[in-house]
Design a protein around this nucleic acid. Structure first.
Length: 211
DNA sequence: ATTAAGATGGCCT
DNA sequence: GGCCATCTTAATT
């Protein structure tokens, strides 16, 4: 399936893109190997939306959100976990789609190694936790949340903020899942804009972070 | 089943 | 000084 290009990212408004990205495949190729997963859960963040990091003005933290459509915005949540967003609108606007969960498709073993390494180093706090990527339950737990998926995919803010999804090495391939029902709900973990229905996920998919 | 609580620490006002 | 776009375990219905 073709890599999504700048035209695609620029062509649609943010909430439409949040829906169109469901079923597409996020890929990261680096020296460790290739990991990939189907996007099963997203949230839109708009420039006139009080929960959006770009709501007030551009700062060093949110600068990537004001970049070209197709830029990756990586931020730290609770200054610990990383979360990744796809910048959507033209330069200077400040809108993005948060990728909240993946159904792993490639490099599951490497994803498991990364998660287990994070437990070992204490980046993930519960040091005696381990993930067995050969079991169904282990696979479900690899990337079923925004903080977990960045670890599994080997993405962090220092290296990958401002990265271009158009040129890689992190990129998104066009839809690999087509026939599914989409659920629209309110977003997770915020108080501002909590009533806005900007969260989308694939109905019945067991890799979605929360029902 | 739902709720609470704690680790974590930079960024913005 | 306050606010978090999280995740897990423990406690409570």
């Amino acid at each position: 399936m073709a890599t999504l290009d700048h035209t695609f990212y620029q062509q649609h408004d943010t909430l439409t893109l949040a829906q169109l990205l469901l079923g597409c495949e996020l890929v990261h190729e680096n020296a460790e190997g290739t990991t990939a997963g189907i996007i099963v859960e997203t949230e839109g963040y708009l420039t006139d939306d009080p929960a959006c990091h770009a709501y007030r003005r551009q700062t060093t933290r949110n600068a990537a959100m004001f970049g070209l459509a197709g830029t990756l915005y990586v931020y730290q949540i609770y200054n610990h976990y990383n979360c990744i967003n796809v910048v959507t609108r033209p330069e200077g606007v400040g809108e993005a789609v948060l990728i909240r969960a993946l159904e792993p498709t490639e490099g599951l073993e490497l994803m498991g190694l990364r998660r287990n390494e994070a437990f070992k180093t204490g980046f993930e706090r519960y040091r005696n936790n381990t993930i067995d990527a050969t079991t169904a339950d282990g696979q479900r737990n690899l990337a079923n949340g925004p903080g977990k998926l960045t670890i599994a995919m080997g993405i962090n803010r220092a290296h990958d903020n401002f990265s271009s999804l158009i040129t890689g090495p992190i990129y998104i391939r066009g839809p690999v899942l087509h026939d599914f029902d989409m659920v629209t709900t309110t977003r997770i973990g915020l108080t501002l804009g909590a009533d806005l229905p900007y969260r989308y996920y694939i109905n019945g998919n067991r890799f979605v972070s929360k029902k």
